[in-house]
């Protein structure tokens, strides 16, 4: 499927100072015959908070997984701060970058999962300091100090010695957020972080994420079904359907006057016909 969009504006070298935090260029992802993403192009500027919405199966989560290198794109290029992530154009050919090069970039990206994925064989504190100590090479004291600050900020200062499975889902997810932040990521990926939580817990987790959005300049790429949260936190919303972006707008526009009929139908379905419910706080 040859495309002649802007794929020839070669990604060989970027200018890191002005380059976008994330850039998708003609990205394609297929699993066997199943094409999940097709000719995908978009950019996320540094400090942006971009929410991806759309029906399930529209490829939103796949985008986060591509950025985290949990999956590799089958076509096109992804750039992080102007640097190719998994594949690059070298000598006119699309080649995979070395694991070492990928790892260098990966360190700057953090991810919070739907299912938390805390390590059950470690305490909460050990979960948080594991990567700072063993990947970034921080001293244990330094990492612990920072971990305690983070635990404080997610409201769990006295759970440092607890085991993950002894915590509630909401508490586990707060630890997972602290664990991701402990790596000081430039980009934070949030993959349906409240979907596995009981409804009454969702609020406490979202409140923490709102505060992180307010107090840091971390670039965020968010997949969520919480439209109110999307509206509060993000400055851009991308509507996906069938592996393509069907509409792109600021949250205000997207949630009040969506243009594309797919967006209208989707929002109508998730908001139960009460679009007016989403307000600005």
């Amino acid at each position: 499927m040859p495309t002649t969009t802007d794929s020839e504006t070669a990604p060989e070298s970027g200018a890191p100072a002005t380059a976008p935090a994330i850039r998708f260029q003609d990205v394609e992802k297929r699993f066997g015959d199943n094409v999940v993403l097709k000719d995908l192009n978009f950019e996320v500027s540094k400090g942006d908070r971009v929410t991806l919405i759309g029906p399930s199966g529209s490829g939103k989560t796949t985008i986060l997984r591509l950025v985290m290198t949990l999956e590799k794109a089958t076509g096109g290029y992804i750039h992080i701060n102007g640097e190719p992530l998994t594949h690059e154009l070298r000598g006119g050919k699309r080649v995979e970058r070395s694991e070492k090069a990928q790892k260098q970039i990966r360190k700057r990206i953090g991810m919070v999962f739907q299912q938390f994925n805390l390590f059950p064989n470690m305490t909460v504190l050990e979960n948080i300091i594991e990567a700072p100590v063993h990947v970034l090479g921080q001293s244990k004291e330094q990492a612990t100090r920072r971990a305690m600050e983070l635990l404080e900020s997610v409201g769990l200062p006295n759970k440092a010695k607890a085991h993950p499975l002894q915590l509630s889902g909401g508490q586990q997810q707060r630890v997972a957020i602290a664990r991701a932040l402990a790596m000081d990521p430039e980009i934070l990926l949030l993959d349906e972080v409240t979907s596995a939580l009981d409804p009454e817990i969702v609020g406490e987790v979202l409140a923490i994420l709102r505060r992180i959005a307010d107090t840091t300049d971390i670039t965020m790429l968010i997949v969520t079904h919480e439209m109110q949260f999307a509206r509060d936190v993000s400055n851009r919303v991308l509507m996906f359907d069938g592996g393509r972006i069907v509409e792109e707008a600021t949250p205000d526009v997207m949630f009040t006057e969506p243009k594309h009929e797919r967006t209208q139908a989707f929002l109508h379905a998730v908001l139960g016909g009460q679009e007016g419910q989403i307000g600005t706080h």
Binding site: M68, M111, F113, N117, L118, E130, H134, A180
Partner: peptide
């Protein structure tokens, strides 16, 4: 999910196997 978390935290293969 445990493997994915180790990728998200950039742990090496050896660290992943031995510690997680």
């Amino acid at each position: 999910g445990q493997w994915e978390a180790t990728t998200a935290l950039s742990l090496s293969k050896t660290q992943t196997m031995r510690r997680i």
